[in-house]
Computed example of a mutant assay.
Amino acid sequence: MAPAAATAAKWSGKPPALPSLLLIRRVDASFAAGLRQRFRVLDFFASGEPLPAFLAAAEAPRAAVVTGGVFLAWHFQLGGKRIGIIGLGNIGSLIAKRLEAFGCVIYYNSRKPKDSVSYRYFPSVHDLAVESDVLVVACALNKDTRHIVNMDVLDALGKDGIIINIGRGANIDEAEMVRALKEGRIAGAGPDVFENEPEVPAELLSMDNVVLTHHVAVSTSESRGDLRDHTIANLEAFFSGKPLLTPVLP
């Protein structure tokens, strides 16, 4: 009997229904485990068999799952994340306000607790990092805040944590941050400022889990206009003998 006739006879005169074809970009370990819990899964690559032999033993599968194509990395869900802000001044407070709109939980470290906010205060940056998914550095640079984010703070942030710096580069021990990224001790980083600007560590340029900007977090036409108006208002107050809007305190 010819092969086609034999196949038809095997299926009682009716040709077998072709399996559905499912194209999935990527099957990671958790997804594969979920499939196996619900369905009987035959894995061609794990079988070690030639494709014809694998298909012959597949007993008329209901679906063929094909993985491949271009895979885009999973995006980071912001809502519900615990955000630790170092420096809840004007900029830090505005960051917190915007993150609240995304449903984030805001924690902060500052020189002292602020009665005007309900966010949880941490006197220790290390303890703040332990409780945070993302650490945002938004403080000024002085002798107390130089390397305020060091090896211990990065390790406290942990392998799933992300560090963002829009303050000053030396607020973070940059060499230690690079090591933590390379060793997988933190998940990612988003520095806008660098410790030895304009120099940027070469290792950061090749990392997929790092987003770099060149000290432009404030560079919008609106913010430049606000800065100009604020500076003029400070000058007018000074020459009029009035209190400055934003005095520089010793």
Rank of each mutant, 00 (worst) to 15 (best):
S221Y: 11
V149D: 05
T67R: 06
A175G: 09
L205M: 07
I148K: 03
P250F: 09
R98Y: 00
P15M: 11
C104I: 00
G69K: 15
F44M: 10
A187F: 04
A180C: 08
L35Y: 02
V41P: 08
P50W: 01
G92C: 13
L18T: 13
F76P: 05
R146A: 12
M207A: 05
S118I: 05
A233K: 13
D127I: 03
S118G: 11
S124V: 04
R146M: 08
H126R: 12
A53P: 05
L135W: 01
A138L: 04
R26T: 09
L245D: 08
V178R: 02
P52F: 05
G241I: 06
D160Y: 08
A57R: 14
V105W: 01
F239D: 14
H75E: 15
L78P: 04
S20N: 14
S47F: 03
N165V: 09
G87F: 01
V134G: 01
L78F: 00
G69Y: 09
A237Q: 15
A64R: 00
D115P: 12
A175W: 00
I24H: 09
S110H: 09
R25F: 01
A233I: 07
L212T: 10
L55H: 07
F31V: 14
P16V: 06
L244Y: 04
K112V: 05
D28N: 15
L181R: 00
I172G: 03
L212S: 09
P19F: 00
A138W: 00
V149E: 06
D133G: 01
V66Y: 04
L205S: 07
L21G: 14
V216N: 15
D192W: 00
V248C: 05
F122A: 07
H214V: 12
E49T: 11
I106G: 03
A5R: 10
A189Q: 06
V136W: 02
I85C: 10
V66Q: 06
R26G: 06
N109C: 08
E199K: 12
V125T: 05
A96W: 00
F122V: 09
G79C: 02
A33Y: 02
L55F: 07
D127E: 14
P52Q: 10
E183F: 00
R111N: 10
V41H: 03
E59W: 02
P243R: 09
M177K: 01
A2N: 13
Y108L: 08
A73W: 00
H75V: 14
L154G: 03
F39I: 12
